[in-house]
Every structure is written in structure tokens, then in C-alpha cells.
Design a binder for these strands. Structure first.
Lengths: 303, 303
DNA sequence: CAAGACACTTGATCCCGTCAAGTATTTTGC
DNA sequence: GCAAAATACTTGACGGGATCAAGTGTCTTG
């Protein structure tokens, strides 16, 4: 049972699942192909026949006949393309949308009934799993959930600790005590924080946590940037910079004059980001930490 | 865009995905229905026609003809059922398996090619997502990943903290400081643990973490059970009892004479488990913890 | 032990979906 | 600048996938 077999199993399973859900279109007198075309027309704006055929992997001849049928029933309108007389823009008419309404209701009802039998946890798992599959395959239609930056909510502290532990173990070979160290830092932050002088942000997209950054008091004048982490999958999209700016902005408003941070030479991407954000390295010392030889660095900038 | 729409989007998306993958069976001269039947016959052992039709949602008449074709080609064998002369056991012959081999190879190759284009993270996400969907729908064919009980690995400490924080906030209304407390306990455990006298277990199924339990030293004679937690989805299946027994067994072997634990009155299921495992309550005091009024309890048992 | 349910099979039929050829328009190559 | 190739679409022809209904034995049930 390898990766390929797992996908095959899933394909077989979901083929059956789709078969069950397809019953809802039975009453309409339309075939699956026709329903798929209508759905795309309803959700996708004006289409060119060829693109539609390609997207749905339908035979162009078949599609031509399907569209002709729709036109005869007044469900679609085709208007010549300005600039290319071969193509015609296909759009659903109000009558077409009306004709689709009962079908729409039936599929929605069918899915609703299917979901009804699931408990809330399973339902959440289903949606998360479905989104994960689409994301993995790179479905361009998958809506990007909005990015949010929140303060610590229940579970966040542990997540920060867990991801620091796991990623530093993977990338730097750190041992368990690093995770314990982070746990101590986070616990301390929660217990002693002064909302005016210290702040934590979690970057979220939908249900997922993408990263975190902390601003903590070192002295009245000096803020320290700590626990800056980005999930590997979320890197390279400017998110790190946004989080840095959030942190710098808060430090400025909180009245700090300077911001300092620690990092390691091996974090090239992070170091580049610090440099781009106006930090400069003020010291570098070789050290042994968490079972690994590292080069500690301190960086700072005025605010 | 509600739950139902998300599922519909996924259905549309995966219908397209399946359409692409179905090309691999094109060269064989077999239709999708025939391929599905062959697959089931190959993986599912002897079938009765009716069950097969039901599973694949195929018309019985159609299936009858398909099977007749297979029999004519010597791909299947049907032997009368002992005890019911109406039914016949359908099984793939070696010749049938051989006929399927190139098709098998083609689908595997098609999927392999599809996976090749994905980076490792996406691939892991895909498999996890697919499994999540099947689990949510309650697919009985989804293999249960084997249960394992491991010591702390990178990321586990943080997970323990995160889940304690999230679940106690949800169920008991505890505030952030509880998560910080747990972080302190776990950090302390990692830093000061003596492998002979303290132990932690994470219950895992595949990639998922289902729960945790700790045995820590209180005095040379007395062990303390701590940080016992089970994911809600994993409760009610005897897993808690197994973890308790692991913990008690370790404490016994480590030479402890007695085991104590703290809990709260509101944890009814856990308390019942403790009682069933031979613990008895030794004290009860009302208290205020983490923003909530609670009734602290201490339990203990001899080893 | 008859009536009904059950496991299939067979017949009739439809239309889904595919291949191939044809038309009009646009792009490309020399 | 014009023929050849490509593109967007249509139409024709056709096979067989899929469905409904009726039929045949066999088993279960009241």
C-alpha cells in the first residue's frame, strides 16, 4: 500500500461518492455532461466553447450539440466575439438560470443530507481534507482564505512551541531541550506580559496557522523581537516582511527606541529579511546550542 | 460560499481530476464500468453479483452483461454458492488478473506522473487530505493506521501544550495562563527528566497524535500521573485505559510504591477511568483556577 | 405450501459520447 | 502577400454504455 495505491483507493471511493450524489440530477432529464456545462456557465461567466470543452474534457462535437440544445431552449445566448469571428461568447440567460434553479436546489439538498449525517468534527475534517486535496493539486479555483494576524488564542502557545521544536529539529538538528526553552519563553510571556509593552501575533489563513512573531520588553527603551517563525509552505510570499513590519510598528507606538534580536547565521532567509527591514548585525559569536555548533548573531535597528 | 458550496466545488474539481486519470484505461478497450468491476474483483475477493452492483451503483442488468463478457473471455470464474443456488461466487481467474495487469500499470503510471509534478509537501498534504475525507465520510475500507505509543519527538511537547490549552479553554473555560502552566510543566519535564523515573507517551495513529500521558517522580516512593489527555475523536474506544495501564506498568517497574494524580470533579469520564483502574479519591477541595470555579480532586492507588 | 422476496438474466431501447469529415476564419511560414 | 496550417466550431455517422422492464429459477415467510 504505497502512495499510488492510496490515491487509487481514494479515487475509487470518491467515484462511488460522486455516483451517489449524481442521483440528484436524475429528475431534471439532463445528463451529467449537460449539468456540468450548465454549472460552469453559471459560475464562470462568458465562455468560449473550446475552453469549456477543454476544462470539462468533453468532446467538442458533443459539446456543440449540447449547446445547440440549450440555445434552442433559450437557456444560453451566443454573441460573436469582437475580433475573432470564429469564436462566440456563451452566457447563461435568465431563463437558463431559472431552469437550473431546481437542479441547483436538488444537488444542494443532496449534499446537505449527506453532511447532516456527519458530526461536526467529521464535517470540519471533511472540508479541511477537501481543501487540502485541492491545494495539493494546485487548483487555481481554490479561494485563498484571508490572511489574519491575531493575538494568542487557546492552543496558539503550544503551536508556536511545537513548530519551533519540529522545524528546528528538522532543519538544524536541535534536540528536545530547544523545544523546552521555547516553552519556557512562551509561558513566561503569557504570565508576565504587559499589553502595552509586549505583543504576539499569529498569522492565520482560515483555520491554518502560518507563523508567529513576538515583541517583548528588554528595557524601557529596547524591545526584543523573538520567536519569529514562518511555516515553510508560507515562505517566499512577503508574509515575513509584513509580520516584521507589524512588530516594528507596535514597538514604535509602544515608545521603544531600539529593537534587537538574536538569530543564527544559518538562517539566511531570515537574516536577509532583517537586513532589508533596516536591521544591522552587531555581533557574532560561535556557540554550541542544543547539540549543534552554531554562530549566534545579534541584530538591531533604531525605531 | 458555505459548506455545501465547498463540497460542490470539490466534487466538480475532483470530477475533472478523475476524468484526466481515466484516460489511462483508454487503450484497454474497456469502459469505466468494466474497469471498476475488474478492480473490485481483484481487490475484494469473491463477490456476489448483487453486492457488486450495489457497491458500484451499477444496474444489475448491465453488470450481468459485463460479467458475461468477462466469463466469455475467461477472465472470471463463477462457482455456485453452497447453500443458495441463486447466487454465484465471482472470482478473477489468473487469466483475468493477467489481462488487467497492463491496465493496472497504466493507471499506476498515470497517477505516478501526476504525483511527480507535486513537491513532497504537497504530496503529503494530498495523502493526508484524501485520508481525512475518507475518514470523515466513514469509509469502512480506510485502513486504520496502527496505534503506536512513542516517547516525545520534536513537536510533541508543543502539541501537548496546544491541545491542553485548546481543549480546556473549550470545555472548561480556562484562560491562557493554563496553557502557560502546562508549558512550564512540560518544559520542566524535558529539562529534568530521569529516564528511569519519568516517562511520557504520545499515542499516535499514522501521522496523527491522539493523546498523551506522563509519569513523573514525586518522591522516591510516589509517582505522579500528569498531563493525561485524549483527543475527543479518540475517546470511548478503550485507548485511555491502555495509556493508563502503560503508565501504571512503568511506575511499577520503576520501583514506585504508589501513584497519585490531580484532576477536577468535572472530568467525569476521566474520573470513571481512574476509578476503574483502581484509583480512589483521597481529597476534594473547591478552588478557583484559570478564571473558573472548580473542585480539585486528588486520587491515588498502590502499585 | 402458496405468496412474496431475492438473485440473477434477457430483451428492447435510447441517447451519450466518440471519431471523422466539413466549413469558415485566423495565424503562420516562406 | 499568399498558400498552408492551425483554430473554432458544426455536422454526420455510429457503436455500445446504460436503463427500464419483464422473465426465470430459487429461497424465505406466514
Amino acid at each position: 500500500m504505497d502512495e499510488i495505491d492510496e490515491i487509487r483507493e481514494f479515487n475509487r471511493f470518491y467515484t462511488r461518492e460522486l455516483g451517489l450524489l449524481a442521483r440528484s440530477s436524475l429528475g431534471s432529464g439532463l445528463g451529467t455532461g449537460e449539468v456540468r456545462v450548465l454549472y460552469e456557465l453559471q459560475h464562470g461567466g462568458p465562455w468560449v466553447a473550446r475552453d469549456l470543452a477543454q476544462r470539462l474534457a468533453l468532446d467538442e462535437g458533443y459539446l456543440s450539440r449540447v449547446l445547440k440544445g440549450f440555445e434552442r431552449r433559450g437557456w444560453i445566448e451566443r454573441r460573436p466575439d469582437a475580433g475573432d469571428a470564429r469564436r462566440r461568447g456563451i452566457a447563461l440567460t435568465p431563463a437558463g438560470a431559472a431552469a437550473m434553479a431546481p437542479l441547483e436546489d436538488a444537488t444542494r439538498a443532496e449534499i446537505a443530507a449527506r453532511l447532516e449525517r456527519l458530526d461536526p468534527d467529521a464535517r470540519a475534517g471533511l472540508l479541511a481534507g477537501a481543501a487540502a486535496v485541492r491545494r495539493a493539486f494546485g487548483d487555481p479555483d481554490l479561494p485563498e482564505p484571508p490572511l489574519r494576524f491575531t493575538d494568542l488564542a487557546p492552543g496558539d502557545a503550544g503551536w508556536i512551541i511545537s513548530r519551533h521544536g519540529a522545524l528546528y529539529a528538522r532543519d538544524e538538528g536541535y534536540d528536545q531541550t530547544f523545544e523546552a526553552l521555547v516553552a519556557g519563553i512562551v509561558a513566561d510571556f503569557i504570565r508576565t506580559r504587559d499589553p502595552d509593552r509586549g505583543r504576539a501575533w499569529i498569522a492565520r489563513a482560515g483555520q491554518d496557522r502560518l507563523g508567529c512573531i513576538f515583541c517583548v520588553r528588554e528595557t524601557d527603551e529596547v524591545a526584543q523581537l523573538r520567536l519569529f517563525l514562518l511555516e515553510p509552505a508560507a515562505r517566499g510570499r512577503g508574509l515575513g516582511r509584513r509580520m516584521l513590519d507589524l512588530c516594528l510598528g507596535f514597538a514604535r507606538e509602544a515608545g521603544y527606541r531600539r529593537m534587537v534580536l538574536w538569530t543564527h547565521e544559518s538562517h539566511r532567509a531570515a537574516c536577509a529579511l532583517y537586513a532589508a527591514a533596516g536591521f544591522s548585525m552587531t555581533g557574532e559569536t560561535p556557540a554550541v546550542a542544543f547539540g549543534q555548533a552554531v554562530v549566534d548573531q545579534t541584530w538591531e535597528r533604531d525605531l
